[in-house]
Design a binder for these strands. Sequence first.
DNA 1: TTGACCCGGCTAATGGTGTTAGCTATGCTG
DNA 2: CAGCATAGCTAACACCATTAGCCGGGTCAA
Lengths: 183, 183
Amino acid sequence: MTGPVSSPSVVVGRSARAAAIVAAALAILESEGREALTMRRLADAVGIRAPSLYKHFPDKAAVELVLIEHGFTVAARAFEEAIARDGASLETVMTAYRAVALAHPHLYRLMTAGPLPRHLLAPGVEARAAAPLLRVLPQPDLARAAFAFGHGMIMLELDARFPPHADIDAAWRAGTQALQAAM
Amino acid sequence: MTGPVSSPSVVVGRSARAAAIVAAALAILESEGREALTMRRLADAVGIRAPSLYKHFPDKAAVELVLIEHGFTVAARAFEEAIARDGASLETVMTAYRAVALAHPHLYRLMTAGPLPRHLLAPGVEARAAAPLLRVLPQPDLARAAFAFGHGMIMLELDARFPPHADIDAAWRAGTQALQAAM
DNA sequence: TTGACCCGGCTAATGGTGTTAGCTATGCTG
DNA sequence: CAGCATAGCTAACACCATTAGCCGGGTCAA
């Protein structure tokens, strides 16, 4: 089950049509996954023909890039709210990380699939999402280890790569506590 | 840089043609990545037409499955040799994990891309690759955390997701030591 | 020896993908 | 009012995995 489709936050400065395209793309992605997000399908959802999409975006990657930026913003907000609510601890951030990734699995996959075209990403978007983890875990090496741990856990959980009987909550706790203790 | 293309180990019981197809598929995958592995390209490499591949494999996923099994075997051997050489420690296994993944990045990506069709996998192949980690880290929850940490580190490194100045070796050490200390 | 059969090639074609070229209508602007 | 950019359209291209159907050659049995 995916969470409710939030309206895209990365729409400012775009034409109404472009914003509608992004909204439709996000809806398709979140409900049916990356494979379902084709240019024809997207055009259908907006009520135009596929080639007309290229009047608003240079290619499919450009649409996906906007979705990725949206994903970073959603994640950043989730981390910030979690810290405000539950305090600035590693456990808070890791719990929020898992929650937001599982609430938007297809978006999370898109965000982390393959190399990230950093030079095309709006500046600050990535840094804002990374900041909360660095705040609760200031040592850079340990922060990267924690990031990798969380990312790996999510991917393995999403891909059902753990054995069926595995206690995923316990694995999260064990890893988080190990990193916590190393601070 | 990918390592040298090892000859596929999962070829027993196949016709010579099928074995040649698997060998060519592995060569294409390891040298050019998953996108380059198309049925036409694969058929070209073997010297036949694409539809003729279907006389030997039901579909493309079946070819990829053999490559995945090969990857598990390669990884398992690497772990076993590392333990025999350097002793059964978590650090040994983690180092071997990273080494084998970086030596075969495209194969590693294929192995870990999306859900694993366990019911189609030859029995024991996955368990053999998982055994060394469970040996050096018997607590299941911590072992899963270590697996996730290693997998996450590899994916982030392969996708150049860490900032350019990041000390990836140090992050591996930090995470490994944290898990080690939690045993 | 001849017939049947199956194996492993082939060509042609289908429906999908992203994308480009080129036409046209609408509406804003000088 | 002329001109031009905008944003739609159809047709088409190259590629993808895959299927249908044909055919030659080898094997094996009668």
